[in-house]
């Protein structure tokens, strides 16, 4: 009951935030927080639930970003379809990657994803006929769209805010559904012990592929959005190891295998990082590193997990007090 109220309040805040606070920096910050929530949620499905720690998720982000961009620039496909197709392309790319990397377990899986992602980045950098190489792709205008008869002003950040808010909701709902159904339970089993999972009838190859595909789809969509928001892509902006690492950190710091974890992780890290970027030229990821070390050392369940246990303790205390009263 209380949860529903909280969720409704959250939705209302989400809905009116850009109308209340009009500072462009703040809107930009919220867009970044939401986008990184989607990316964190994407990473969380594979790394948190299924326990397959990827260091190469930028591949899917980049695939989505380039697909959306190229479709718009050379075929005139509307970004709304483009973003979705970007998600699909990311899924298609994830399949051969899964075929290679899922043969390895634990840290070796992680290293292999890192290697694949670097290969993909180098290909993007050098396949100039498709990606324009290091120069990157740039769009100057976005298509005319009207909403209830009013033309949308792409120069304002607010429309972007609502788009990414919807994508974020979808990502969180997908995570919620995964966590509540058989699929999510299977992924957890996979994380805990692959042999045991097989022995009770779980097709672990299929489960891993499903997790990867779902994860890639969300990252691809976020990538498409990123490209449209920046109106620019180049290989280092969307395929770099740094991006993969950021997603991972947001998910781990927020809380692995939790629905709200990526949101918390993104709020904490992205807010700190972006505010830092406002004042200093470089080095905004310093908090990511710092919080990661803190989380591994003191909060293995992440910030979200920590909040949850604190709440549980409080509730227990209350119950005990009630009992004695």
């Amino acid at each position: 009951m209380k949860k529903t109220v909280l969720i409704i309040i959250g939705l209302i805040v989400l809905g009116i935030a850009p109308l209340v606070v009009r500072s462009p920096f703040f809107v930009h910050l919220m867009i970044m927080v939401l986008m990184w929530t989607v990316l964190g949620a994407s990473w969380n499905i594979l790394g948190g639930y299924a326990g397959q720690v990827s260091f190469g998720h930028a591949t899917f982000l980049g695939a989505g970003a380039y697909t959306t961009m190229i479709l718009y620039l050379s075929c005139g496909v509307d970004p709304w379809y483009g973003i979705f197709i970007g998600g699909i392309v990311a899924v298609l790319i994830s399949l051969p990657i899964g075929f290679i990397c899922f043969r390895l377990r634990g840290p070796y899986f992680s290293l292999s994803t890192l290697a694949v992602a670097e290969i993909v980045r180098l290909v993007a950098l050098n396949w100039e006929s498709l990606t324009a190489g290091p120069v990157g792709l740039l769009i100057t205008t976005l298509p005319q769209v009207s909403f209830f008869g009013k033309a949308i002003n792409w120069e304002s950040k607010v429309p972007f805010y609502y788009i990414i808010a919807i994508i974020t909701l979808i990502a969180l709902i997908i995570t919620y559904i995964v966590s509540r159904t058989r699929v999510g339970a299977y992924l957890l089993a996979l994380r805990e012990d692959i042999d045991s999972a097989e022995s009770i009838g779980i097709n672990t190859v299929k489960a891993r592929v499903v997790a990867l595909a779902l994860s890639a789809f969300l990252a691809g969509i976020a990538g498409g959005f990123y490209a449209m928001y920046l109106r620019y892509v180049d290989p280092d902006a969307v395929f770099s190891i740094g991006l993969s690492v950021e997603m991972l950190f947001i998910a781990v710091v927020g809380g692995l295998a939790t629905v709200g974890g990526p949101l918390i992780g993104a709020i904490v890290l992205v807010t700190l990082g972006e505010s830092f970027r406002e004042h200093f030229l470089s080095g905004h990821l310093i908090f990511y590193g710092f919080f990661m070390m803190l989380a591994i050392r003191y909060m293995p369940d992440g910030v979200w997990g920590r909040i949850n246990t604190l709440f549980k303790k409080l509730r227990l205390k209350k119950d005990v007090n009630h009992g004695t009263a």
Partner: peptide, 18 residues
């Protein structure tokens, strides 16, 4: 080889999903 970080009930429910 139990699923260590899951509860006993979750361990067995997973198998019952079959």
């Amino acid at each position: 080889k139990p699923f260590r970080k899951l509860t006993v009930l979750e361990n067995v429910s997973l198998a019952a999903f079959l």
